[in-house]
């Protein structure tokens, strides 16, 4: 078992945990954190495969993914603040109407 297999297994584990957080938790902020964990796992897998294959494209894609993740979390957190203002809670089951 080499380093690459270990890193790929870690990426798979982090991906599974992030997926479970997105599916099982009811806080909106936990769902956003789960999405961050998913993106982080995908980054880890991309970098490890690109390093193993002696390529540079994976690292460049990871650079773009990190930028998109920053934009996504800024938008998501401002939506979350709006959700808290309108419904008084950030639980997903309180936000049942689309039009406030």
């Amino acid at each position: 078992m080499t380093n690459e297999i270990l890193i790929q297994l870690l990426a798979a584990f982090l991906f599974t945990t992030g997926m479970l957080i997105v599916l099982l938790r009811r806080d909106t902020i936990m769902i956003l954190m789960g999405i961050e964990l998913l993106l982080n796992a995908a980054n880890l897998s991309l970098v490890a495969f690109s390093k193993t294959g002696h390529m540079i494209e994976g690292q460049v894609q990871v650079f773009f993914i990190i930028t998109i993740a920053a934009a996504e979390s800024a938008i998501g957190l401002s939506i979350l603040v709006n959700l808290y203002r309108n419904f008084g809670s950030i639980k997903t089951q309180t936000a049942t109407t689309l039009k406030g």
Binding site: T67, I68, A70, A71, E72, A74, I75, L77, S78, I79, V81, N82
Partner: peptide, 15 residues
């Protein structure tokens, strides 16, 4: 895309 996200976050937070 980052610029659009910044503007969108400001608009969403102020509305």
């Amino acid at each position: 895309a980052l610029l659009v996200a910044v503007v969108g976050a400001v608009v969403l937070a102020k509305r």
